[in-house]
Design a protein around this nucleic acid. Structure first.
Lengths: 138, 138
DNA sequence: GTCAAAATCATACTTTCGGGTGACGGATTT
DNA sequence: AAATCCGTCACCCGAAAGTATGATTTTGAC
């Protein structure tokens, strides 16, 4: 980024310099002032486009995950349910999830049942699928 | 895209026109020709940058999915197995998969068992998780 | 045409999941 | 105080998923 700006500055300075130099040597003789201005405008417009591309092309963010809180709220999914959902998405079994969050496997099942209702699915794979598409989980 | 180019062309033409107009009225009196050229250059450079951003900002590729054939090959996953895996990833049950690809549910189970071995997992959710991380499926 | 891999199907058995119901305590809202 | 929501847990039942083993057919490569 800084490098690009630096290069751009250099290029701009150099171009101005070159243009000023040629101005009094050749162009003034052969072209009208309007034509001269037009050429300069074109060159700098081109330069600007090039710089614009440089500035934006590398700017593509790694698409930071952003949780969809609105959807979460709209669906009425609680903290604990979301937690279980994330563990399901990691491929854990109900028993493993129970061990992870220190509750009984029955509790995990209850959370999941409610999740399935809220997400309108009937199996864990579908829940994960849907949750990801809604950006509920990453 | 076409619209942007059109707008750019209009803006450029307008700017040139305006500049030419003012050239003979004010600037020539107050500024040296070099200064005049510099201002024009700056304006068009800015315009160029703006256009450059417009041209590229909407160009962010949707990150086309590219299947990891090497991994697929390395793991020895067959066509049919991959097909089943994709359906699993969509949240289908074994029976639904069987109906989709017109085989018995037993066949689906067999394919899945082999997949689990090859992916070194023991449940479908883990298989999907791993397959996605390996870019085996989208 | 032989051979191996892939695909198919079956049967039997175990484990995991999901659905339904009910219950209890704590926190918040009404 | 009553109603609600959340988190917790239990029990039961049936469906789905996973494991194991064995067998037949297709297919592709050599």
């Amino acid at each position: 980024m800084k490098k690009t700006i630096f290069i751009y500055g250099l290029a701009l300075a150099a171009l101005v310099f070159v243009l000023e130099y040629f101005e009094y040597r050749y162009f003034i003789r052969d072209l009208s002032t309007g034509g001269f201005v037009f050429i300069i405008a074109l060159m700098f417009a081109g330069l600007g486009i090039w710089v614009g591309r440089k500035l934006t092309s590398h700017k593509q963010a790694p698409t930071e995950f952003q949780q969809n809180d609105k959807a979460l709220d709209y669906l009425g999914i609680s903290e604990r349910e979301l937690e279980v959902l994330q563990l399901v998405a990691q491929g854990l079994s109900n028993q493993q999830i129970a061990d992870t969050i220190f509750v009984s496997i029955n509790t995990v099942k209850t959370h999941l049942s409610r999740l399935y209702e809220k997400l309108e699915v009937s199996r864990r794979t579908q829940a994960v699928e849907k949750a990801k598409s809604l950006n509920l989980i990453k």
